[in-house]
């Protein structure tokens, strides 16, 4: 593990810059307070005060770490103040949306490669769908689904799916088309049907592409679930936690929720990566 040194060095630099920025950005408030009280503060007095504010402009790393730690371990996991509780709400929507998006993406890709009309009609719509800002469409999905009596998990999952199907479609179309002319000719000499060509050649050949797409797709799903929580009246989920934090100026809470989301995303991508390694190894494609 020779890469540990450089990785730690980069983290150390980031943390150092972060502390420096925290001092710089939070110092104004300390000086204001001092001016109001009619006292003078020296730089050395300012520094510790910039790192212990309740609503800092930029919380110091250890404050965020403490907020994260309290949020995860300091509460019962059923508590509304627990990050585990909110994290699970978001994660469940993410996973459901990811499942729907992946399934839909694969189905569309299969349709696109087998049907000329779909090839020419679906792809432009899929691309157009991704050019619309998700923030604009998410509230409408929530409202429309609410009006037909669907609320809670599913509308958020739909927004997740909306974001995650696209990389899967693009990746799978590329993957299913990856066999070259010679491979396809070979199957023609066996007089193989379309179904056989699909199951024996196209699908296995697309696996590396699929997993590359899934890694993008699952991160997009998480973003979708969080965005989906913003217009739901801020009840539960990491998105709600972010929104509440911004209402009340709880910057530490915002950052803690952001980091919680980042860790969840990293874990999800890591899991997809592990599944990829296992599947490709089983297929004999890992060396």
């Amino acid at each position: 593990m020779r890469s540990v040194g450089p990785v730690l060095a980069v983290i150390a630099v980031i943390v150092a810059l972060w502390y420096a920025a925290a001092v710089g950005m939070n110092a104004a408030w300390v000086r204001d307070q001092a001016a109001r009280a009619g006292t003078e503060v020296s730089f050395l007095q300012i520094v510790p005060q910039t790192m212990a504010q309740e609503r800092p402009v930029l919380p110091a790393p250890h404050q965020v770490a403490k907020g994260l730690w309290d949020g995860v371990t300091g509460q019962a996991i059923t508590s509304k103040r627990s990050l585990v509780y909110h994290g699970w709400i978001t994660l469940s929507a993410t996973l459901l949306g990811f499942g729907i998006g992946t399934g839909l993406g694969i189905l569309l890709a299969v349709g696109i490669i087998h049907n000329r009309a779909m090839d020419q009609s679906v792809m432009p719509w899929a691309i157009a769908s991704q050019t619309i800002p998700i923030l604009a469409i998410a509230p409408m999905i929530i409202v429309v689904m609410n009006s037909i009596g669907v609320s809670g998990l599913l509308p958020k999952a739909v927004i997740s799916a909306y974001l995650s199907f696209f990389p899967v479609v693009v990746g799978m179309v590329t993957g299913l088309r990856s066999p070259d002319a010679m491979q396809l000719d070979l199957l023609r000499t066996y007089n193989a049907g379309r179904g056989q060509t699909f199951w024996k050649l196209r699908l296995p050949a697309s696996m590396p592409y699929l997993f590359a797409s899934l890694k993008v797709g699952i991160a997009a799903s998480l973003v979708g679930a969080i965005v989906g929580e913003l217009p739901t009246g801020a009840v539960a989920g990491l998105g709600a936690r972010l929104l509440q934090g911004s209402y009340y100026g709880q910057t530490i809470q915002i950052w803690a929720a952001l980091f919680a989301a980042a860790f969840v995303a990293a874990a999800l991508v890591g899991i997809v990566g592990a599944v990829q390694a296992a599947v490709l190894k089983r297929m004999g494609m890992a060396r």
Binding site: M182, D185, L186, Y190, K200, A205
Partner: peptide, 28 residues
């Protein structure tokens, strides 16, 4: 299926063993 065709490149499927590759036309 009157003929077997051998291309310039072996074109074996990387996800199949040698036996699995030979089995491919037989499965089809």
């Amino acid at each position: 299926r009157a003929y077997g065709y051998v291309f310039q490149a072996a074109g074996l499927y990387p996800w199949r063993t040698i036996a699995g590759n030979i089995r491919l036309p037989l499965e089809i």
